[in-house]
Simulated scan of single mutants.
Amino acid sequence: MDIASVIGMVAVWILLGWAMMTGAGIGPYIDIPSVLITFGGSIAALLISYKMEHIKGTFKFFMIAFKPPQVDVPGLVKKMVDYSTQARRDGILSLEQSANQEEDEFLRKGLGMAIDGAEADTIRELLELDMDQTLSRHKENASIFSTWGALAGGYGMLGTLIGLVAMLLNMSDPSAIGPAMAVALITTFYGSLIGNVLGSPINSILILRANDEALVKQLVLEGIMSIQRGDNPRNLETKLLSFLPPSQRISQFE
């Protein structure tokens, strides 16, 4: 669980709730027609904008923002160095059993190609293609939330215009203007809420998650290429540790 994301989301709702409670209370901010226009309209527009397979995965993507897959990167570096040491000592074919048991699909695929004797350029080309396509899919999934935020803002403004038209048609009753104006503005409030609490922040954190995954895959790719070339394990470790923050660069050879 990413504690910063959780704290941020909880804090946003607490601050907004507190601000509304100190004013007129929560009640005036609840309006069913405004909910239907802003939430319903923006979600309907998402159905037009994306394939159903993307929409079905929205909840899963949302959860990844707060609970991303955990990767022990220092442990991964150690594993790659151990593989390199074994390959230098016993030959790269000795890694076949380890490769077959490897849980990481990307690492298993790369090691398998190296063990099978594939050319270095072929291994790099195929693994980079895998990385690029995975990153592209993740960013496309993240874009659902930014699109939702933009659509919600538009539908919020549309709802406000609908409310203003209704208000202007009832100008003969001055006492109704204030409440009508409040209702008209609620849709803009809902649109801003979706865009700034759910849309943009979730999109941003999902892109960060995707970039983190791409960085780990780049680390694995460089490790596989070094193993395939038969590089010295110390040199491999030095290269892979450069992917880590300085505070995590602990060498197993020291």
Rank of each mutant, 00 (worst) to 15 (best):
A4T: 14
A4C: 05
S5L: 05
V12M: 13
L15Y: 10
L15V: 14
L16C: 12
L16W: 07
G17P: 06
W18Y: 11
A19D: 03
A19R: 05
M21D: 08
T22M: 12
G23Q: 15
G23N: 15
G23T: 13
A24M: 08
G27Q: 14
I30G: 12
I30T: 13
I32A: 12
P33C: 12
V35D: 02
V35M: 14
I37T: 11
I43C: 14
A45C: 06
A45E: 02
A45W: 07
L47I: 14
Y50K: 11
K51H: 11
K51W: 09
K51Y: 07
E53H: 13
G57H: 09
F62C: 02
A65P: 00
V71F: 09
D72K: 09
D72C: 10
V73A: 14
K79T: 15
M80A: 12
M80W: 10
M80G: 04
D82A: 15
S84L: 07
S84H: 07
D90T: 09
G91Y: 05
S94A: 12
E96Y: 12
Q97V: 15
Q97L: 14
Q97D: 14
Q97C: 02
S98R: 06
S98D: 11
A99F: 04
A99E: 12
N100L: 10
E102W: 02
E103N: 08
D104W: 04
F106I: 08
F106W: 07
L107Y: 04
L107G: 03
R108V: 04
R108D: 04
K109G: 02
K109M: 11
G110R: 02
L111S: 00
L111E: 01
I115G: 01
I115P: 00
G117F: 09
G117T: 05
G117D: 01
E119F: 08
A120M: 03
D121K: 06
I123M: 07
E125R: 05
L126K: 11
L126S: 13
D130F: 14
M131G: 00
D132C: 00
T134F: 02
T134L: 08
S136F: 03
S136A: 13
K139I: 12
K139Q: 06
E140M: 10
S143A: 14
I144L: 15
S146R: 11
W148L: 15
A150F: 10
L151W: 03
G153Q: 07
G153W: 03
M157T: 14
L161N: 00
G163T: 07
V165L: 10
L168S: 02
S172Y: 02
D173L: 05
P174Q: 04
A176Q: 11
G178L: 10
A180E: 06
M181N: 03
M181Y: 05
A182Y: 06
A184P: 13
T187L: 00
T188N: 02
G191T: 07
S192R: 00
I194C: 01
G195W: 02
S200H: 05
I207T: 06
L208F: 03
R209T: 00
R209F: 01
E213G: 06
E213T: 07
E213H: 09
A214G: 00
L215A: 03
K217C: 03
Q218E: 09
Q218R: 05
L219N: 01
V220T: 06
E222V: 04
E222D: 12
N235G: 15
N235I: 15
L236F: 11
L236K: 09
E237Y: 08
T238C: 07
L240I: 09
L240S: 04
P245R: 11
S251H: 13
F253M: 10
E254C: 10
